[in-house]
Each structure stands twice: as C-alpha cells, then as structure tokens.
Design a protein around this nucleic acid. Structure first.
Length: 274
DNA sequence: ATGTCACTTTACAAGTGA
C-alpha cells in the first residue's frame, strides 16, 4: 500500500502469523523459511526458550525483520517479529499469578495492537498448575479489559492451551473434561472473548472440525490426525471486519518439510485486508 | 494415554515439562 510519496511505512500489517516454535534455537532455519514462504508482516512466537540476550535478533535483521523478545532461559518465552516498526506496549501483565514466567508481550505494528501470549498449560485437571491456569486466564481478562480500547484494532494471538469447543478436538468424547478441553478453562477463555473479541480461526473455518494447529510428538499423533486447535487469533471488531482468511501451515509440522525437526505446533496465518 | 522432543543439571544419564 504505497502513498503519494511511494512510501510503505504506514501500511498496515496484512499477513500475521502465530507459531509456538518449541525453542527458537532449534527452529530458526524453519522460521526464516516461513517468513519468506508466506511473505509475513508479523509473526508472534511462543516457547522461544531463550533469554532476551540469546534471541537471534541479528539473523532476523539480516532478512529485514525487527524483533522484540520477552524471554527467560530454558522455558516459556514469547516474541514478536515484524517487518513493520514495532512499538512495545507491554511485557508481562499486572496480576499474573506466575509473574516470573515470560508469557505475554504486546506491541503496536502499524495500526494494529498485537499480543503474543503463551497460556499456562495446566498439566491436568486437579493439578495445582490447573488452578494456576484458571487464575492466569482471569488475569488476562482483567489486563485486556484495562489495557485496550476494544473499539480499536487489537489482535490477541498465541498458544492459548485451550481448545475452545468440541470442534477443536480430534476425539471430543475421549477428551471430555481433560486438560486443554475442560469446561472451566473453556469458560475462562470465553470470558476473554466476551470482552469483545472474535475467534478469527473459527469465524474463517465455519462449523467444521479444526483446523488443528497442534499434534503431540508422541504416538505418531500428526500422522494419525490426533490434533487440537489451541493456537488462536482473537480480534476486535475492526480486525474481524478486515478478515480475509485464517490458514494453518500443516506442511510445517512435517519432519520432511524443512531444515531440522518440526515444532509440535503448526503456524496459524491470519490474512487481513489493508 | 503417551511410542517424542527440548531443556537443565553440577553433565557423558535422568528428571521435568509439554
């Protein structure tokens, strides 16, 4: 989108991806290939598993992207990579029950406010970590309500570690009540949506199964189709109004489709009209 | 429910988390 001067600095981002990379160190070659393959404007990353000083900012700069990292050594960690200038808005959130864990980063890119988030996994229903997950979601709701003008273009994207409903699980009967699909966590996610967000992946797909974005490494889950849709993009009304498509790059989940091994998550790509 | 992967540690194997 060029203006009269032929400049593109104010063009809004139109191709935005979210990807749980399960270690940026292991996945950097695949990330670079992904940026080029889809001509992405912005990518939100989760489970980078590096401290900020070890984030590969130079390798990204070389291919025309700047990056913000909110990381910690070894675990968790989120980042935003963009070929538009980024203005940092938030690093972590008030009221986080696990403030030492790097799970949330928000920035402005063009006219869009974008958050990269990595929800608490919860381990299993009944585990103390599950209660932490519910509390984390309540903090997310309160933070989002306090932080954003929900009439403005805002996109919350990342690994939510919740499959919103039974269409988002390969075997709803087997998964009923289990962590990632249980009703209390679905209720907490719904509370976030009810602030004024739309689940763009569901809106784009309609009333069908999936499309899944995560397959466990074990048991040949990808090959067997044992997937979940837990990587989400939640947009306010101005974003939803610009929605063109939401696509899962399933090729990226295959061992053969790039350098090194795949993440257990596939990238989810949101395309907007400019 | 767990057939893998990535990380860490006082490191050449085992535990943790997902």
């Amino acid at each position: 989108m060029a203006n009269d001067l032929g400049l593109t600095a104010y063009a809004p981002p139109v191709r935005i991806a979210t990807w749980n990379v399960n270690s940026i160190r292991q996945r950097l070659p695949r990330l670079l290939a992904l940026l080029a393959r889809h001509e992405l404007d912005v990518v939100c990353l989760q489970e980078t598993k590096v401290a900020d000083a070890d984030f590969p900012i130079d390798a990204l700069l070389e291919v025309g992207y700047e990056a913000l990292s909110h990381g910690q050594g070894g675990r968790n960690g989120v980042a935003i990579v963009s070929r538009l200038p980024l203005d940092e808005i938030a690093r972590g959130m008030a009221g986080d029950p696990v403030p030492a864990e790097a799970r949330l980063l928000a920035a402005r890119a063009g006219d869009l406010t974008i958050a990269s988030l990595y929800a608490v996994n919860g381990k299993e229903v009944g585990d103390p970590a599950y209660e932490t997950k519910l509390a984390w979601y309540e903090a997310l709701r309160d933070w989002a309500r306090a932080s954003f003008d929900l009439a403005a273009p805002v996109l919350l994207t990342g690994d939510f570690n919740v499959a919103p409903d039974d269409r988002d699980v390969y075997d709803p009967v087997a998964w009923r009540g289990r962590n990632l699909a249980s009703e209390p966590e679905r209720d907490r996610l719904r509370d976030v949506l009810e602030l004024g967000f739309d689940d763009l992946g569901r809106r784009a797909a309609g009333d069908v199964e999936g499309p899944f974005s995560f397959w466990d490494y074990r048991m040949g889950a990808f090959h067997r189709g044992w997937g979940l849709r837990i990587d989400l993009a939640l947009g306010t009304a101005p974003v939803a109004a610009r929605l063109v498509s939401v696509d899962v790059d399933r090729e990226e989940r295959k061992p053969t489709s790039g350098e090194g091994k795949p993440s257990d998550h596939a990238p989810v790509i949101v395309t907007l009209r400019d």
